[in-house]
């Protein structure tokens, strides 16, 4: 009877192992078991396929050598070692890493490390990485597009020698406000403009945040030595700014671009006369 049970247990065990192997070998995730010295104790087929080469195996090699091709633990600012983070936090950690596959191609991998505890001490780590190269590249492309759109949406025009205009169109959020500020200041330095006209005709809402950003931009431009004129202030915007308690004293403001330009010409000692 006992022998029978033992045989049955073994049979069940083998059955379980076949299932584990089937599962672990057919997922795309690369799964490894690491010891506390970063050495690979076990790896699934995904790891072998991606990083294993004919010359060298991956077992008992350090993880950083296999996935990064480097001879030291991952260090910031490039990649943060998730294992060190797990040792600090005690719980699982997910990071984005730049890996190099068996052909030396760069791939982006989302890596999660889980601690394996034995008697309250971490003895091993389960290291699961997933190739997210396509996703990351798509995200990077999206970011570039967003940047291009922001740049296109905040043109700075040199209207006259020494006078630049910044027509703002659309909603201004904090990241765009930053971009506007940096862009304007760079153009001021490049063109040596004495006066910058900020046209907010196309800005639908000026809340305290936007107003604060605009005032900071004007102050920063003044530190460079350039005066700012704000134009295109619609009646409802003027009303809402006063209600919000926005203080525009010290900034020259005009209703239209034309009157702002007129003021700028006069300030520069220029006169527009009919031919």
């Amino acid at each position: 009877m006992a022998k029978n049970r033992q045989a049955k247990n073994i049979e069940e065990g083998i059955h379980d192992l076949t299932i584990y192997k089937k599962v672990l070998d057919n997922v795309h995730e690369e799964i490894m078991l690491l010891d506390t010295d970063y050495r690979i104790l076990w790896a699934n087929k995904g790891v072998m396929d991606k990083y294993g080469s004919a010359k060298a195996g991956v077992i008992s090699e350090p993880c950083y050598k296999v996935t990064h091709g480097i001879d030291h633990v991952c260090r910031p600012p490039h990649d943060i070692c998730p294992i060190e983070e797990v040792m600090k936090d005690g719980g699982p950690v997910t990071v984005l890493h730049t890996h190099f596959n068996r052909n030396g191609d760069k791939i982006y991998a989302e890596v999660t490390s889980y601690p394996v505890y034995d008697n309250g001490r971490i003895t091993e780590f389960i290291h699961i990485s997933r190739d997210v190269t396509e996703r990351v590249i798509a995200e990077e492309r999206l970011k570039e597009h967003q940047k291009a759109i922001i740049e296109l949406s905040t043109p700075v025009i040199e209207v006259w020698k020494g006078i630049i205009a910044l027509p703002l169109i659309g909603i201004i959020d904090s990241s765009r406000a930053r971009q506007i500020m940096e862009n304007l200041l760079d153009v001021i330095v490049k063109t040596s403009a004495s006066i910058a006209i900020i046209d907010i005709t196309g800005v639908p809402i000026v809340d305290t945040e936007v107003a604060d950003r605009l005032i900071k931009t004007i102050k920063a431009a003044m530190l460079l030595g350039t005066r700012c004129v704000m134009v295109g202030i619609k009646p409802e915007i003027a009303q809402s700014m006063v209600h919000l308690g926005v203080d525009l004293s010290g900034v020259s403001t005009f209703a239209s671009l034309q009157s702002g330009l007129d003021y700028a010409f006069r300030e520069m000692g220029l006169k527009v006369v009919p031919q």
């Binding site: 940096e182 200041l185 001021i188 330095v189 040596s192 004495s194 102050k219 003044m222 460079l224």
Partner: peptide, 30 residues
């Protein structure tokens, strides 16, 4: 004269506006 854009932005963010000091873009203008 000659404050760099990044320095000017940081000064404003820090809350330093140097009120009462005249600034200019470069030595010539100054």
């Amino acid at each position: 004269v000659g404050l760099q854009p990044a320095v000017a932005i940081t000064m404003v963010e820090l809350g330093m506006e140097l009120a009462g000091i005249h600034t200019a873009l470069n030595m010539e203008k100054g």
